[in-house]
Write a protein that binds this DNA or RNA. Structure first.
Lengths: 143, 143
DNA sequence: GTAAAAGTGGGGAAAAGTGGGGTAAAATCT
DNA sequence: AGATTTTACCCCACTTTTCCCCACTTTTAC
């Protein structure tokens, strides 16, 4: 399970250090994809395979599905971690997540989310506005 | 069951000694999470698993649920107690609970609450103000 | 009062994070 | 096709952070 929040940077060569806590679970390589909410997702190979199989099975006769399939696979990338535990983030994904320099990396159960620090800050602020709803939801699941 | 209230400190290396009374029940490690009311919770591994399993089952297609999952897992941390029975509190959780130096640690049945001493004092005062009799009496003498 | 346990502080080795050089491969241009 | 430029990738170096361990102080228990 991926847990916790980390600050990190992308360098001039578009490399990002994967937080050390996540590396063992990924085992040297991972799938980097476009996430919801203007962030990127890192999946383990196994989880990605499961998703990919489901998505590939969607009926290609439907135009919406075709677009979705194109979007999903076109914005997925197999990333191998280098000797320092870093992955390279390609331009199309950097653009999508507005990534320039400072990042926030968050464990979200079965995936890791990569955010531009600025985008995340804006998003969190917006979230705060509707925070009471949130707390109520948390209460439902608390023990 | 976790019982009792303890004063303690966080040191310059962001470590907090878990009150000795709680250690046996935690068994060397615990889950540290964001709580309600600007405090942190310590759960046993077992209790956390129960909550996590429920939350993991939420549909990721719903934006609110995605935020919730991100918030919950991103602000959870597996903490191993060091040789002195201390855990490290990460920055995101310190920030959330306004933790700088002095802490109050309270057993709350199935979880342990960690408060910044100042935040707890403010919270207790605010609670006192809400006590109707007290407030009414205060009104008589207020100017 | 004494011994044991709990709490607190800090040194130092190891790991993680970060930046950059150099070479090979790929792409582009003429 | 050959030459030139760009990109990728492996490796090394430096800085920062983490974590293990030891030592001292304070509290608790008998």
């Amino acid at each position: 399970m991926f847990l916790g929040t980390y600050q990190n940077k992308i360098d001039d060569k578009n490399r990002m250090a994967v937080p050390a806590k996540f590396r063992d679970q990924l085992g040297g390589k991972c799938m980097l994809t476009k996430g919801f909410d203007e962030c990127l997702y890192i999946y383990t190979m196994e989880d990605f395979e499961v998703m990919a199989a489901k998505i590939a099975a969607l009926p290609q006769s439907d135009a919406d599905f075709r677009e979705f399939i194109r979007d999903f696979f076109g914005n997925s990338e197999l990333c191998e971690l280098d000797g320092q535990g870093r992955i390279k983030i390609p331009q199309n994904l950097r653009d999508y997540a507005h990534i320039t320099k400072d990042l926030v990396t968050t464990g979200a159960m079965n995936k890791v989310e990569i955010w531009s620090a600025e985008t995340k800050a804006d998003f969190d602020l917006a979230k705060k506005m509707k925070d009471s709803k949130f707390t109520d939801k948390l209460r439902e699941f608390s023990i």
